[in-house]
Structures are given as C-alpha cells and as structure tokens.
C-alpha cells in the first residue's frame, strides 16, 4: 500500500502543475480565438478614421481609444445597396442548403444500401468513394471547370450546387454508413414482419440515424458556406457567394476595410449558432454508438 501512496504523490505534482497551466493555456487560447472576431466586429461598426486610430506601442492607457467611437452601420448599408450583398447572401444560402439537402438525401440512401448489403468488391467501392475526397480541390478544379464550361454550368447556382454536392457526397456516404451500421438490422426485420416493405422499413429506422443526418447536414452547409475556391471559379459570374464577393472588395487601388469587416461579420454570424448546433448533434450522434433497444 505504501508504494501506492508514493505513486499518487508523484502524480499529484503533475496534476497540480496541470491544474495551474491549463487555465492559463485556455485563457490564452480563448483570446487567440476570439480576439480577431472581436476586432472584426468592432471595426465593422466604426468609420475608417476610428478604425485606424491605434495607440502608440507601449501606451497601455491608450487602449481606451479602441472603444472611443460612435457606432455606425454605413458599411453594412453600403454592402447591400452598392455591392449587391443581398444577392450573394441569397446565393450562399441556396448553394449551401441546396447541396446539403441533395447530398444528405442521396448519401443516406447510398450509405444505407452499403451498410445493409454484402457484395464482392464492396470494400473497394467504399475506398473508391472516399478516395475522391483525397485529392485537394485545387487539383481537380481546372478539369472540373472545363467540364462545367462545356455544359454551361459555370456561373449558375445549379452548377455550384453540383460542385459542392460532388465533394460532400462521399463524405456523407462514409459518415452515414457508420450510423446505419450502428442500427441493428433486426429492427427492420421486425418492421417487415409487421407488414412494411424494405423502403418503409428504411423510413422506420431513419429517425434513429437522425443525429447523424442532422450533424451531417450542418457540416455540409458549413463546407459550402465557407468555400472560397468553388465559389470564385465555378460560381464566378452569376453565382458568387459571400466569401468570393468579400474578396472582390479588395481592389488594387482601394482596400475597403470597413466593408470587408462588415462582410466578414455577415459571413460569420449565421455560422456561429450552426456551429453550436453541430456540436450538440455531433456529440449526441457520436456517443450514441450502437442503438440500444
């Protein structure tokens, strides 16, 4: 028993140090993560003069200058009146939600069949599906552009949705297959005996995969919403989304910081509640494991 106490004493020191270090680390991390967002928000409601008034290095008292301004929404108003941000916001919404719905519908059906059926080369097929996500987007964007050009999809919302779906679908299949694997087939067998056909039985168990499907829809939306490359190349012209539009506020002769910051806020704001949601769903989904009866 004595040796055991010595071991816990050793551990005690490490734990004590960790206890001190981790809050400090977390505090730094919090500042690191939140400060840019905070500055962005502040800068978006200041006029240019206020935004660039910074205290001298070392002048800590001058930090109050940062909060010394009268808030203005001119940048936001200008974005929507001068820069068509209404359209871009609409494009972002349609492209991300549209691709998420398509990917999740096709993906859940595909994942279901891959989970329930056995056939030769199934493993190879699964690997092939995920391997389409292994190449970086930049590597495929040029041929994709050529293809989309030839079928007149460049610069259209359906084109952009198709591009996002191409990239979200393999991910959907893999993620949802895991969820369906965790749902005992016996439940569908019971449904079939109760008088349902295969498809009705699938619909019966669908609510059990709901946490996974919910999490996945949100991840899809996040991917499409934050995407820059597809939106600038495939979407350029008629289907620009918020990130691509924000980039265009950087002109060679004039960088409009106020508008850029406001656009950043517009782009980020809807994703924060979504991020919190995905956290809840993901945790619920991933800890669900096998469905308990």
């Amino acid at each position: 028993m004595a040796s055991r106490e010595i071991i816990s004493y050793d551990k005690g020191v490490a734990v004590k140090i960790l206890k001190w270090v981790s809050p400090v680390f977390l505090a730094f991390y919090l500042v690191w993560a939140l400060l840019p967002l905070f500055i962005m928000l502040m800068a978006s409601i200041k006029d240019l003069l206020d935004a660039f008034s910074v205290p001298e290095p070392g002048d800590w008292a001058g930090i109050t200058m940062f909060f010394d301004f009268s808030p203005t929404f001119t940048h936001y108003i200008a974005l929507f009146t001068e820069n068509n941000f209404g359209t871009y916001l609409f494009n972002s919404l349609v492209a991300s939600i549209g691709s998420a719905i398509i990917a999740v519908t096709l993906g859940s059906m595909c994942a279901y069949s891959l989970s329930r059926s056995e056939f030769r080369f199934k493993k190879d097929l699964l690997f092939w599906i995920i391997s389409t996500r292994m190449a970086p987007i930049v590597a495929v964007i040029v041929p994709l552009y050529a293809i989309f050009r030839s079928v007149d999809l460049v610069g259209t919302l359906p084109g952009l949705i198709l591009a996002f779906t191409t990239f979200n679908l393999p991910f959907a299949i893999w993620m949802l297959k895991g969820f369906f694997d965790g749902i005992p087939y016996a439940i569908e067998e019971a449904a079939q005996v109760d008088g349902q056909n295969r498809f009705q039985a699938f619909l019966t168990i669908l609510p059990l995969a709901a946490p996974g499907i919910g999490a996945f829809v949100i991840l899809c939306i996040l991917f499409a919403w934050n995407d820059f490359l597809f939106s600038t190349i495939i979407g350029s012209g008629g289907a620009k989304t918020l990130p691509a539009a924000t980039k265009e506020l950087v002109q060679p002769q004039n960088i409009d910081w106020g508008k850029i910051m406001a656009a950043g806020v517009i782009t980020t704001a809807p994703m924060i509640p979504l991020g919190l949601l995905v956290r809840r769903y993901l945790v619920a989904g991933l800890t669900m494991g096998a469905v308990k009866e």
Binding site: E189, A191, Q192, V193, L208, V291
Partner: peptide, 20 residues
C-alpha cells in the same frame, strides 16, 4: 414472398423493438 406478404407475426429472439 417478402415477409409482409406472408401474413405472419413473429417474436424475435433479441426482441427487436423500435427503440424510438
């Protein structure tokens, strides 16, 4: 014939209740 067309009722060894 699929199960639904056989007009059977079954009690499963592992119950197979609908968890939700």
């Amino acid at each position: 014939l699929p199960p639904k067309d056989r007009d059977i009722a079954m009690v499963f060894e592992n119950y197979a209740l609908y968890p939700h």
